[in-house]
Computed example of a mutant assay.
Amino acid sequence: MWTKPWTFKEGFLIGGGLIFAGLMLELSVGPVMWDAFAWPANAIVLAGFFVMLTAMAYLRKKIYAFQWMTTYQAAIPAMVYAVALTIIMGLTRQQANGTWLNNMLSFWPFVLIYVYITVILGLTIHRRLRQILRGEWSMKRDVPFLLNHLGLFIALTTATLGNADIQRVKMICSVGEPEWRAMEQGGAIKEMDLAIELKKFIMETYDDGSPKRFASEIQILTKTGKNIETTIDVNMPYEVDGWKIYQYGYDTQMGAQSQISILELVSDPWLPFVYTGIYMMLAGAVCMFVIGGRKRV
């Protein structure tokens, strides 16, 4: 073991070592505090990450570990650990203020494994780009490869570092009264750049009286001068000035006669980059399907 070339054994040992290191960090410093990575800290970290990847790529001929990280022997064990942790996350109840397995997105072993995968992706992409620049180019091979790998890299980095910039607030809107204030998750009051006035609360019920549909006819006023009238249904948000407005609740005691509507407003400035990565992976999958189909023909 640890004799060149490294194999899957070393890959699983490195992954296990990262999980052990993560457990030690979890015990000593607690979960990952993503709030510390809010803008502009996340942009600085991302820039530093690119610098680190570039340095590792150019040192890979001198440091064997960096070269090995672009092989299947490194990638497959890392993916096995990532899949296992993701399955655990799906099987356990996740809570924003949970600990250990109940808050996997802030669980150090989970974070370290995904950072490790991102490093492997970055080094692999860099190696392929250098081959392309040397003229070793194949459209059938490289287009799907770059779309899939770059897409996954973009989705992972932006979803992770953008997490701290997500804002979720709740606004209680009353009929005929524009509301500029919203409540943050911690209970603090936040003055918004838009006001929402409830025009009418709508509820449709089944024969037994249970809600079938509830929605809000609202008017939105923004500091940028927009004046919008729309209807917000459950799971059918309206987006304006970077905020998605969701129907969240109402006065359950009043039911269909409710004079208030509770709306949730969500802002995620990094989401377009995450979608870009996902769309790139979808495009890569389509390319692989088309190319594979041509080969069979």
Rank of each mutant, 00 (worst) to 15 (best):
F66N: 08
Q67F: 15
W34I: 08
T54Q: 07
M56H: 04
Y72R: 09
A36P: 00
G17S: 05
Y58T: 03
L46A: 14
Y72L: 14
M69Y: 07
A41P: 00
F20G: 03
A43R: 07
F20L: 15
M56G: 02
S28H: 11
A55M: 12
L53M: 14
G17M: 07
I76F: 12
F66Q: 08
L18F: 14
G48S: 05
V45T: 12
W39D: 06
A47E: 03
I76Q: 00
F20I: 15
L46H: 04
L59S: 12
P31R: 09
F66M: 12
G30A: 07
F37V: 03
F50L: 15
F20Q: 00
Q67C: 07
A57G: 10
W39V: 10
W68E: 05
F49S: 06
E26T: 12
A74C: 13
I63R: 10
Y58C: 00
K62N: 08
L46E: 07
A43T: 10
Y58W: 15
L18Y: 08
P31F: 00
R60N: 12
F50W: 12
F49I: 03
R60V: 03
L53G: 03
I44R: 01
Q67S: 15
V45C: 07
A75R: 01
M56A: 11
V29L: 13
A74D: 02
V45E: 02
A74N: 01
Q73T: 14
Y72Q: 06
A36K: 13
G22R: 04
Y72W: 13
I76M: 07
Y64P: 05
I76H: 02
K61T: 13
L18M: 11
T71S: 09
M52Q: 04
Y64N: 08
W39R: 08
R60H: 11
L46N: 05
T70N: 03
G48W: 06
G17D: 06
M24L: 15
V29S: 11
M69R: 06
F49A: 06
A43Y: 10
A57H: 15
L27S: 14
I63T: 11
G48M: 09
M56E: 04
G17K: 09
G22H: 04
Q67R: 15
